[in-house]
Design a binder for these strands. Structure first.
Ligand code: FES
Ligand code: FES
Lengths: 153, 153
DNA sequence: AAATATACTACTATATTAGTAGGAATTAAA
DNA sequence: TTTAATTCCTACTAATATAGTAGTATATTT
């Protein structure tokens, strides 16, 4: 499971992406309210995202956060990894959180690892081609669909 | 990430599967040593697997555990779920550990959920078609392959 | 009866996650 | 230049989950 931190980060970035054209900073308090994220916690998360170069910030009374890259350049796999979420199901197949399996003497011939590797590849394939923009696009598509369904009733 | 408990469970079941033809019980102490699993912990895990009907047991001096189903009938997705490991990356897309996302007012139009759903489906697809027997088969294939590579040198 | 297994309950220790408190530094506007 | 509003940063705390252990009861074979 992804941590809440990761989920909050994604939602916060989506909030920024929705108003990206203007590229003016959005306040933490605004993001927090829009996305229902604990304010202080979000503060810590945004700071971390800035340290990783995903967002920029402006201090002072007209300050806030803004995306540094374009919404179509920020991939889900990226955000997950930056916020500390391993995608792999086992440490022995994780690129960024690798640890050997002490019980398995030989990784190369481990059948379990081999399957889990396949799962990771399938997951990464999706997550690394899905950008913030793609998610917003899905949002639109989904809300149109449900609206259409409702009028049909 | 999968819990150690889940990984241990899979490895223990694989140990039973390797000698399945005989279908005679294998002692916890033997499994624990073969797979390098803490003995007492494995005891608790095997007990749980038995309660879930995956293995049977025999008490007494010639006792131990044995598979109840055939190795090709026990799917990885099954073991993961029984030992408490959610496969989904978010609770809102988990079949067995479902919880609504309080911050997302409407699940149906949540773009993030939509992507994570796809990831889950891709993972399940692999995990639910891979049985213990399949893993053993991979083991064989992999060890033949690495052997061949070594002789080439 | 002795030896040897599993069955079961109830802990403990450790690590991780989620979140908070409080103040320093910065900026803009009055 | 003061004030208000914001991010920046360090250092906590609380809650939860994971990993693993202890000890004893119960069953089975010899
Ligand atoms: S090497 Fe990781 S499960 Fe075997
Ligand atoms: S409903 Fe779960 S992330 Fe939106």
């Amino acid at each position: 499971m992804l941590q809440k931190k990761t989920k909050y980060a994604i939602k916060a970035l989506l909030a920024l992406a929705r108003e990206y054209k203007e590229n003016k900073p959005m306040k933490i308090s605004v993001i927090a309210e829009k996305e229902a994220i604990p304010r202080k916690f979000l503060e810590a998360i945004m700071l971390e995202l800035r340290h990783h170069g995903l967002v920029g910030s402006k201090m002072g009374s007209t300050g806030g956060y803004y995306l540094i890259k374009h919404p179509e350049e920020i991939m889900l796999s990226n955000v997950i990894r930056l916020t500390g979420g391993p995608i792999a199901l086992l440490p022995c197949v994780s690129l960024n959180f690798y640890e050997p399996c002490i019980e398995c003497l030989n990784e190369e011939i481990c059948g379990l690892r081999n399957v889990i590797l396949e799962v990771r590849e399938a997951s990464i394939k999706i997550l690394s081609k899905t950008s913030l923009k793609d998610i917003l696009f899905r949002e639109n598509k989904l809300s149109k669909k449900t609206k259409a369904l409702k009028t049909m009733k």
